[in-house]
Structure formats: structure tokens, C-alpha cells
Amino acid sequence: MLSVAKLLLLIIAVGTGFFANDILHWFNAKNDKISLDEYCLITTYACTQDHKTVQADKDTSQPLVPTVVEVDWPESSNEQLLISLQGYEMDMGQVVFKLDKNSDGKFSGQVILPVCTTEAMTWYGTITDGETAFKTSIRMER
């Protein structure tokens, strides 16, 4: 009887050790939800953060339908910016889009978000010129 208890405890200890990283990751993912309040939402209304302004041609994006995004970044000397986004409600990987500089000094490009299984989703991330970045988000609905 004592050896059965020892064997059971050994199996539990080995199993716990084997899955410890997955268990910790699962608990941390539940507790590490970010606040979207600090992210500049891309809509038809200009959103300004640190003298940088971002605006879109529509308030909500649709899956696989281009949304034109325009950024006014006066202190950037680069010819392009990168938008890097990831899903807030579910993990769908990371998408990156390029914005090119126009003749008027603003950056513009298209954002085409992938299809999601939910009716609506928020994508959040950064717009960067390679040196500095600011936080942004975009709402997608079917």
C-alpha cells in the first residue's frame, strides 16, 4: 500500500513538472490583459499621440476589405512606417503593413485584416519608423 502511494506521488510530481511551464503560461495569459485605453484607436476621427496623428477612411474595418490609414508624423525623415498588429480577443498571430510617404509628407497605406471566427475583434499594436513607436488599435467587424 505504501509503495502504491509513493508511485502515485511520483507520477503527480513528474506530471506537474512536465506541464509546469504550460500551466504558468496559461495563468499569466489570463492575468496579463492589456488596457486598450492607452492605444490610439484608428477611426475617421484623427487620434493624436506625441505629435503623431493617425486616421482611417472608415470607423471599423472589415475582414479582407482594405482600410486606408493615413499617419501624420512630422519629425520622421523615413520614407515608410510599419504598422504591426495582433488580436486582442484571440491570438491570430501578428500582421505587419507598410505605409509609404506621400508628396505632402504624410504616410498612407492599406490595412487588410484576416478573417476571424468572431463577429468583431480589436487589433492592437504599434506604428513605428524604426526608431520610435506609438501604440494604436483598430476595430474590425463583419
Rank of each mutant, 00 (worst) to 15 (best):
L85C: 05
T53C: 06
G109V: 00
L41W: 02
H51T: 15
E70N: 13
T53H: 09
I138F: 06
T48R: 07
I83P: 00
M92D: 02
I83D: 00
E38T: 13
Q94K: 15
V71H: 02
T67V: 13
Y124Q: 14
V111G: 04
E131M: 12
T118K: 00
I112K: 10
Y39P: 10
T60D: 10
G125K: 12
K52N: 13
H51M: 15
K52G: 10
I138W: 00
T43M: 02
E89R: 00
I127C: 10
Q86W: 10
A133S: 13
T53A: 07
V71T: 01
V111R: 03
I112E: 08
S84H: 02
A133F: 09
T44M: 06
Y88W: 12
V54N: 07
K135P: 08
M90Q: 10
L82Y: 04
V115H: 12
L113C: 11
K98P: 00
N102Q: 14
V95T: 14
Y124I: 03
V69T: 10
S84R: 02
E119L: 08
K106T: 11
K101T: 15
Q110N: 04
D57M: 08
I138L: 05
T132N: 14
T136G: 01
S77V: 11
T44A: 07
V68K: 01
N102E: 12
M90E: 14
S77K: 09
C47I: 08
T43Y: 07
P74T: 12
F107L: 00
T60C: 06
E38F: 09
G109I: 06
Y45A: 10
T136H: 04
Q110Y: 06
K101L: 11
Q110V: 01
S137L: 09
P114F: 07
G109L: 06
K98W: 03
D100A: 15
E75Y: 12
K106I: 00
V68H: 06
K52L: 04
F97H: 04
Y88G: 07
L85S: 10
G87V: 15
Y88D: 08
S84M: 02
Q86N: 13
Q86I: 11
